[in-house]
Amino acid sequence: MSALIFLVILLTILVGTLGYIMVIYNGLVTLKNDIDKAWSNIDVLLKQRFDELPKLIKVCEGYMQHEQKTLEAVVKARSMVNEARGDREKLQAQNALTDTLRSLFMVVERYPDLKADSVFRNLGQRISDLEDQIADRREFYNDAVNIYNIRIEQFPDLVVARFFNFSGRELWRIDPAHRQDVAVGFSHI
């Protein structure tokens, strides 16, 4: 009788352990897919920003007759995004687009009429909102990757991760150029 009880306890523990492994495995699969989804959700916003640009350039063209170079740079960066293949290339193209947009908004300061245009203001606000949202989603992506990386390195998830070959994911890395200090000079004042 006692052997039977021992067997039952063993069996229940076994069922419990198997269930636990299943929960861990399913959790890791969900996390991995959540990371992919978080990455794709950044793309959704980048696409929205991409679609807003022709409208912005169209509005700017009317006012900025002498800033063709800046506008061309934005158009060129946009087409680079369209042509980019692979994650690294896409990332570089998006960063280049962000830079050219920043230049464009700096140049706009010289055109008070354009700044006062309601369409431009609306578009500028929308693009600025999108930039904020993109930043939030990058942060979210990093959070998701961080949780996943911690999970697969912690016991007992580590065992399941090793057995089923779950490997770590990379965090979002910014362009090294953006880490440099901003050069501030007051010589022109």
């Binding site: 959540d34 989804k37 939030d136 979210f140």
Partner: peptide, 11 residues
């Protein structure tokens, strides 16, 4: 396992 989102950028 679910990271916290910001309401501004909810997916």
């Amino acid at each position: 396992n679910t990271p916290t989102s910001k309401t501004r950028s909810l997916a």
